[in-house]
Amino acid sequence: MSTATVENEPASTVDLGESGDGAGAIESFEVTLKVRRYDPERAEDAWWDEWTLTMYGTDRVLDALHKVKWEIDGSLTFRRSCAHGICGSDAMRINGRNRLACKTLLKDLDTSKPITVEAIKGLPIEKDLIVDMEPFFQSYREIMPFLINNSPAPTAERLQSPEDRERFDDTTKCILCAACTSSCPVFWTDGQYFGPAAIVNAHRFIFDSRDDAGDMRLEVLNDKEGVWRCRTTFNCTDACPRGIEVTKAIQEVKTAIITRSL
């Protein structure tokens, strides 16, 4: 398959036609950014700040936040690192939906109204857009997110067919950004719920043909705060910046628990 495509040498020269012109000039526009601030060192309660900025067509919400931080108000605080959607630092509530600030282009939002940005819901807010991630990672750790294989390891790799590998591919994409868990209405009121992210990461091992501890993980998630708390509202699937079918993964874990008990 891959061999065929590579061995067929593509043409040395092609007519690029229209496509050679690329994206063309980048337009600029005004946006109003409205951020929910919180800093217990300055005020007891949260407050809203608004800034109007000139931004460009390729700019993301993160660029707008940076513009504020670097040019207007240095005290605006948020986490960010890679800035292209793979590190999972900057999950936040943008216009009421959980998104990564670095993957949300301003031009895709309704710029005629202020763009609201808040910290993700359900986790304790520490300052501005920063929340305490410890409860989130605690749930992650409890589902034993690591390969457990009791048979002696072969000298070379453990074999796995491409089909078996494909079985859990979707859930290996998780970046632990917490967008799913903090979009879940159940988690908002019940912080003890394991949450979609922990279940997704359990799914990644439960359906890995090399893993022997699927039963233990299913037992953990059979808890009253486990998969049965899921109400299939699909908020998590909608929020996932990696396009993981989170609700489907949760359903698969439920099915696995039931089939196991039968």
Binding site: P124, E126, D132, E134, P135, Q138, E142, G191, Q192, E219, N222, D223, K224, E225, G226, W228, R229, K254, I257, I258, S261
Partner: peptide, 26 residues
């Protein structure tokens, strides 16, 4: 803010595991 502690409201009580929730769901 973080000295290794987690707000009690996030801590699951380690009650005995049973199939009740699963049965309820089914």
């Amino acid at each position: 803010p973080r000295s290794g502690r987690i707000d009690p409201k996030y801590l699951r009580s380690r009650t005995s595991r049973s199939n009740f929730e699963m049965m309820a769901w089914v």
